[in-house]
Design a protein around this nucleic acid. Sequence first.
DNA 1: TAATTTAATTTGACGTCCAAAATAATGTTG
DNA 2: CAACATTATTTTGGACGTCAAATTAAATTA
Lengths: 417, 417
Amino acid sequence: MRGKADIDLVRRQNRHIVLEVLRTHGPMPRVELGRKTGLSPASITSITTQLIQEQAMLELAEVTTRDPTRRGRPTVRVDLNPKAANVVAMKISIDGIELALADFSGNVIARKTVPLATYNFDPHKFGDVAAQSISNFLSQNDLEPKDVARIGIATQGVADSREGVVAWSPAFKARNVAVVAPIQNALGIPSTLANDANMIAEGVMANDHRRYVGTTAVVYMGYGVGMGLVIEGKVYHGSNGAAAEFGHMNHIPQGAICRCGRSGCLEAYAADYGILRSAEDLPDDTMPPSSAVNPAVMAALEAAARRGDAKAVAAYQKAGRAIGFGLARLIALLNPDRIVLAGPGTRALDLIEPTLRAAIEEGVVDALRRDVKIETVPINKDMIITGTIGAALRHLDSEIFAFGPKLNQPEYQELTP
Amino acid sequence: MRGKADIDLVRRQNRHIVLEVLRTHGPMPRVELGRKTGLSPASITSITTQLIQEQAMLELAEVTTRDPTRRGRPTVRVDLNPKAANVVAMKISIDGIELALADFSGNVIARKTVPLATYNFDPHKFGDVAAQSISNFLSQNDLEPKDVARIGIATQGVADSREGVVAWSPAFKARNVAVVAPIQNALGIPSTLANDANMIAEGVMANDHRRYVGTTAVVYMGYGVGMGLVIEGKVYHGSNGAAAEFGHMNHIPQGAICRCGRSGCLEAYAADYGILRSAEDLPDDTMPPSSAVNPAVMAALEAAARRGDAKAVAAYQKAGRAIGFGLARLIALLNPDRIVLAGPGTRALDLIEPTLRAAIEEGVVDALRRDVKIETVPINKDMIITGTIGAALRHLDSEIFAFGPKLNQPEYQELTP
DNA sequence: TAATTTAATTTGACGTCCAAAATAATGTTG
DNA sequence: CAACATTATTTTGGACGTCAAATTAAATTA
């Protein structure tokens, strides 16, 4: 049950959709804003006036060449004020952390990669070291922690976002590495932790927002296999933020060994290392390497398969079958509208796709699978960072700027003579 | 993105939560309604006055013995007006249809079972025959179609609720049996079709509403295996209403044959007929019977297993393992807060549970499974009917009564002298 | 320069919420 | 039993955000 509604909710909701429209469609005149939101011109005037007064929005001084055949008063476009806030995105990988600083419009202002031997890192130290790295990163950009409104953190593996703890990740030998608390304590900036595949889904969805109204599963294929689940247009985070561990969904009971230590995970057949292990004809119980597979090695394997190398071809077929059965199970459970394949693994999609589709056909009632659309998105190395920034900004939109300026703080004191 | 908000939305939302509180907690005084909804006494007065005037609500003339130590003005309890509307629930089974008539308070006024050889029924006729049965049922209760506000229809199998068509069901040999359209055309009553397991989930959730805030999977075990998925407190229906076909989620590629015609579905190991087939040592490709297994046969099998009959024990263990791996896959994907086991199959839970839990342990990263609660609900033959009625009534609450009386229809015409 | 066109703002009415005051209906107490 | 205390409900009046309609603004066209 949603809670009670009042005039406050109305204001918040409408300010929110104005911000959301600007964020997804870019600057536009007020009339257009009215059309897109469904609000009357009067309300748009009222809302934009406030937002501009609060510095969350600004009018663009047009230098634009406007269509000279159009008559009437020219439009004035409004846009999010880039200076309204800054956010930091941090991505935890096995060999270091990646940092990005963005303004309120989503422009990336600075980036930095900090090499860090995460795998054997003392789990009690990691958060502090990360906080220090962020602090340095900010100094280098002439910012202080108070200038940053939010930090979004993405990690491989199982992220417990309620506790702000990396429950398990290939990046750490240790379990339950605390991340959010030490960073928040050190810097005083509200921070959230999420699974990297969920952040890819945030990015994919933000890019083409209208299409993600129902349920979409975004599958990431690469050094691992992950998934971000978009349900009713919102990224689904499960009971503690660790949802959609598609890669560690069981494929075959007592099957091949996985990085997570269990047997039969889908990833053990379809991640880079799994494909490589099949192609090299190593036994299924060969321990996966603790570091990522060199992209050049994967490129060579692809080339071999395209030349017709039987073992390479078979390895990709096996991967396709694993992903296909995983998707079949997903379809049976969730009946999604759309499945999006993403990540470097899609480079070999042609090698994978036939068995992938055959497995879906074999694994699920046709009544369920007939409507699902399967697509790919272009490979983009930065999807995780972009998605994390987008998620952080959308959070600011709805939780800070939609409310308006500091509450219960009158602008001026009435003088009583 | 939710749409714009206005004063209209506020009214609707607040009327809706008032109705919802009454529906889930039963009659209560206005003060209590205010506490439960968070609305002020003034607003409660305003809303209840309107609803009473519209005949959707009534004041109870108290005959109650009230606590004599309490001082102050006595409370007056308000309740939903049972006469505000009627709904019909219809359940399609393999051997007939079951009908129930309920009032706006959810009291079942009448029931009827209509035997019908559904399996070989002409698919083009079924909807018309069902409509005729409903029409007769109403006549027998001195009602006309115009007195019924909604019909909810539940079926086994894959229900395409967007099209109102039974895409596939063990009850029909035919595919794509149209149900909603013929009934709506014949009777003029808005109708919806849903999967029976989803309706069980509606019922389970309505009974103990506070506990289903996050994600819950309600598993039905019996003549088949089904699932209703509650996500963020709402039953999830997927892209076309056919979600959560847990029973037809693949368990083992190229495994045992299922009623749906495919191989390796979970149901083929864990539904009544699957367990029986294992226990009788029949080969995995033995065609399942087209009718339900006699409950007495299942009771005998349970008894045999409890006596220690090796084959019976092994059959239940196999069933537990199938469900366990299915749940492990579900947990990996959705990280639910709660899994509820329901249906007659839970009578044999003690026989199934050890392998079920072992399979979950084997099949999913412990970080994901550590928080999930596994529970059972008492076996209740009527859960599907009750759930269907509840869903229909909640739909009326939000889509009819929350809006208020007929729109754009002034109460009186102003006289201009 | 006046008319036309389109954009944006201002004005005034409406509906809903809420706090505070008033009213209602009972029990308690001297 | 009358005055007081207590609790429930309604009434009153102010606030706020939306919207339709009127007004103002800023351009092009004739």
